[in-house]
Design a binder for these strands. Structure first.
Lengths: 376, 376
DNA sequence: TTTGTTAGTTCAGCGGACTAACAAACCTCT
DNA sequence: AGAGGTTTGTTAGTCCGCTGAACTAACAAA
């Protein structure tokens, strides 16, 4: 079944399309252009979108009224005819509150502007809190972040560890003691704002895709920390998977004769790649490079079928750069190249994240941008 | 960038949405219901789609005028109120011509009705033809199939080997000597009908998804023949990949110490799984079961990262049932289960195709149904 | 100053979906 | 049998959003 989702809002359940949806779609289309290509004149927007100048003018009008977009005056260079009035996204007009719940000792958050830049940060130590106490701490953190901005807040985006469904319910996050916890609903009720929740690796993928100079084409972000998880953007959209568990690659067995894993099985990717394990192996070995390259080769071997099957364009490694960039990255790249067809391997880009530790926060903001404005 | 594709037609390049598109979307929405759930009354359709009875009546009117849908009278059971008039898809009102170019010795084709049933078949031996000669043969086969039906033809769907881009240009198909051949354009010009071309494994996935009792949720169809290829339906849509090479899994290296492959590398999946190789190994061994189970285990090991990363729901094996069903399938299933998390592995269904050798033909028809009517 | 060009606005019209209201056809209850 | 209630599908009129055509504004070049 083909899904039609008007930019800006999730599709109404029935699938029917109102004129209102058309309007929101076009509004989002204009915003998209402005986000992606920077300021432009109304006439320019009309040309690139195919809408008439009339429609564009009217839509820009509503966006200016909302404060989302502002007039910037005429451009410097002058051509023949009446000089255009540039309009552009007013990045500071509206803020987004982002939460990153993935570190295991604390909850971090930020105020992010429409350009995806962090304008303020705040965090609270988790101190072992779980279940309802952890939820309460999330609410507190959100409140404190909301108090840190005087601008209207578009919504709250959350990157949470564990499996998160499309409605923002955390189905399973052992670290936080959440099982079927309706995080989005609770936070929405608490704050009265739109709330969007996704798995941290998934938000990282969104962040990298929209603000990390991604090239377009399939993107996979592999997050390496205490655990290992991935997020995938395929055909321009985030992959959720059958049970919302897409990207849960940490407990895929890559070496049946490997180390025992906390999950009960043997040789999970996490036992190979998770930071504690990797650091331990590094400490025990004389050759740092050999350990890293060896790890990269095994990782590459596990990812080659994925890259080949999906014809991915970019593989982004996110985590401690001292471990991931260098021999490990090189080995991953060369191994995947060696193990896939030229059409696929030659085009593949393997790199570390350009957003660093902020990927999840920025990605959570993208979640809100996409959900509320239809921009991504 | 979020893509909006109104059911029925590819999005106009700009991304703008006309009222016309809304109408087509709603028409497709109704057709979808009728295809999926069978006949229904106008009032029923209105309830399930959320459109008003007025709008539904009008839309049904146009579809009846087109002959696509027919009135079926009142249902047997009678409830209170005026009895409804059921309307249903007129499966034989329109035909689709499907071509399967994947066998390496011949080109096969069929006339398919709207219900996905093959109503006539025809084939032509390839006799080593390549390049322009092969293209000419495709045209001939299409003409002959078109002559076999007196009903209006909705379009021509083609499942071709090799890498095929979204516009129906065959980028690379060594067997047929095609490199950058605009197959869809040529056939469209030749016949004057809408033509849609995709990779054979991709059309197979479409066929299995729409008419193979697929469960919904991520689906991967692995086609095993002279070569090995896959097609994936993720989040309800066909995956194309960065260079239209998604599913090209045959030349992913699964065993660096394996057999030499025709492609120049060593231990490609094809050397493990392609029918000629597999039959040869079976002939050389005393234990058929051991060879098949061993092959299944290796295949499972290669696919586990894919299944785990994508959180697939169904894995369908398509090809010679005597090889694929039984020990091989069992070993694939158990290996993947053992190598993935319970959330993922427990939900996975591994099975052989329900459509048998017709998957590609039926899938090519789905390509047309999806492209022309927005049904899938 | 005139001419040509480009930007942005006003206005009438059209397409498509919606609401309201109704006739037809059936049930059920007295 | 007849009255009243229900459900279907149609007709009539309204609203909303986009369009094309025409207009005003503002500039460069000649």
């Amino acid at each position: 079944m083909t899904h039609l989702s008007p930019l800006g809002r999730p599709l109404r359940p029935s699938g029917k399309l109102l004129q209102e949806d058309t309007r929101r779609h076009h509004r989002a289309l204009l915003l998209q252009r402005l986000f992606r290509d920077g300021p432009a004149s109304r006439a320019d927007l009309a040309r690139t979108t195919g809408l008439t100048r009339v429609t564009v003018s009217e839509l820009v009008g509503t966006m200016v009224a909302d404060g989302l977009v502002e007039e910037l005056g005429a451009p410097v260079e002058s051509r023949v005819g009446k000089p255009p009035t540039l309009v552009g996204v007013a990045a500071e007009s509206t803020h987004i509150v982002s939460l990153d719940l993935s570190p295991d000792d604390r909850l971090t958050g930020a105020v992010v502007n429409l350009a995806g830049h962090v304008v303020a940060r705040h965090e609270r130590p988790l101190a072992g809190r779980k279940g309802a106490e952890a939820t309460a701490l999330v609410h507190e953190l959100a409140d404190e972040l909301l108090a840190m901005t005087s601008r209207p807040v578009l919504g709250i985006g959350v990157g949470s560890p564990g499996v998160v469904d499309a409605l923002g319910t955390v189905l399973d996050a052992p670290n936080l003691g959440w099982h079927g916890t309706p995080l989005a609903d609770g936070l929405r009720e608490h704050t009265g704002l739109p709330v969007l929740v996704a798995n941290d690796a998934n938000t990282a993928a969104l962040g990298e895709h929209s603000f990390g100079h991604a090239q377009g084409g399939g993107l996979m972000v592999l997050r390496v920390g205490t655990g290992v998880g991935a997020g995938l953007i395929l055909e321009g959209t985030l992959l959720h998977g059958h049970r919302a568990a897409a990207g849960e690659i940490g407990h895929v067995v890559v070496d049946p004769r490997g180390e025992a894993c906390a999950c009960g099985r043997t040789g999970c990717l996490e036992t190979l790649l998770a930071v504690p394990h990797l650091r331990r192996r590094l400490a025990a070995s004389s050759s740092r490079t050999r350990v890293l390259a060896d790890t990269g080769r095994r990782l590459g071997a596990a990812l080659a079928p994925v890259v080949g099957t999906l014809n991915l364009h970019e593989l982004v490694l996110s985590g401690p750069v001292d471990l991931l960039d260098g021999p490990l990255r090189d080995a991953v790249e060369s191994t995947i190249r060696r193990r896939t067809m030229p059409v696929i391997g030659d085009e593949l880009v393997v790199r570390t994240s350009t957003l660093g530790d902020d990927v999840v926060l920025v990605g959570a903001a993208v979640l809100v941008l996409a959900g509320e404005l239809g921009v991504s």
